[in-house]
Design a protein around this nucleic acid. Structure first.
Lengths: 177, 177
DNA sequence: ACAATACATGTATATTTGTACATGTTCTAG
DNA sequence: CTAGAACATGTACAAATATACATGTATTGT
């Protein structure tokens, strides 16, 4: 990809697995190139519009495989929603309920998007997956698509757990327990 | 609390709901005091050891209640574990499996700690909760403890969903599907 | 022909966060 | 009585992150 495509990718899917603001893209690409992890191919579109398309190097692949095979420390928890919930006893029941309802709606929205993406992966119908499968033996295609789709199954399960919990909270609040 | 107590609190419970490194504590306390949200009471222990104990002001309470009653945007997702899982097709099955096993162990550890804390809350047996209940009518005590404990029920449910998903992933990898 | 949109790449600046360093006091166990 | 642990408060510096600004080219629809 080039910087523009990466920017669009992260902007389009800010809640998938990872995201980055546009201002980080170009500096990071240059850093990674300097570190020998990726290399840029300069191209010209039309007569003057320059762009640099990056691809991973052999060293980059090595680094990536090492990183993928190593356990990494969990990030410190900073969940502003659970933090809010921890103090729901300080505000009116209906105010708390409206925060919970908004949260449930957000989680359901995420679930819908992730389900659609999972289906697209299983149908091998996303640009990135198609690109990836080009360099893999056809016998492995189902397995690769299955593994990637399964990640979204996980995201969905987590969002479902969160939404279920929020619904349960609404009941607790309503009962005045 | 004073800065030292806050530091110890966050260090002891880095994965509960929120955390902060020690270096943030003192500057943040000063900022919040300047903003009129908290006020510090200077004390002396022994003959020379100074400390400043902070408590929330009326303005701070107002701000807090407003924040608690408002929906807040979800933080951009940055889940390095799911990111790893998205590329498990690039590494050996047993390397991937060992990453998954470590993750499962971590989640189970969290679940154990959160369960213990939930029980302590239900028994009204944590310092913070005891302090909180002092200013509340006894009739509300059960409800407040129940609401706080319920937050940890949510954390547990999410960790359970993650661990279950990781176990399912191990099976998928083993089957070579 | 021209306006709007998409393509494309940067920088400036502030805030947040993390790791590490620095210093002194008080209490407690041996 | 003394060494080590706990109490207590700070700063320095680097890295990551977010918001906003800045500029120009190519394509597409009307």
């Amino acid at each position: 990809m080039n910087g523009y495509e990466l920017t669009r990718f992260f902007d389009a899917a800010p809640r998938w697995v990872w995201s980055a603001p546009q201002s980080q893209i170009y500096p990071t690409l240059r850093q990674m190139e300097q570190a020998g992890l990726i290399e840029g191919q300069k191209e010209i579109r039309g007569t003057r519009l320059k762009r640099t398309v990056y691809s991973i190097t052999e060293r980059g692949l090595e680094e990536l495989r090492t990183w993928l095979g190593t356990g990494h420390a969990l990030a410190p928890v900073r969940d502003s929603f659970f933090l809010q919930a921890l103090f729901f006893d300080m505000i009116d029941t209906d105010r708390a309920a409206s925060v919970l309802k908004a949260y449930i709606a957000e989680q359901e929205q995420l679930i819908t998007e992730w389900r659609a993406h999972r289906e697209a992966l299983l149908a091998k119908d996303t640009d990135l997956l198609k690109e990836r499968l080009k360099n893999r033996p056809p016998a492995e295609h189902d397995r690769i698509a299955g593994l990637k789709a399964h990640v979204f199954t996980g995201q969905i399960a987590v969002a479902q757990a969160r939404a279920d919990w929020a619904r349960e909270s609404l009941r607790l609040l309503a009962e005045g327990v």
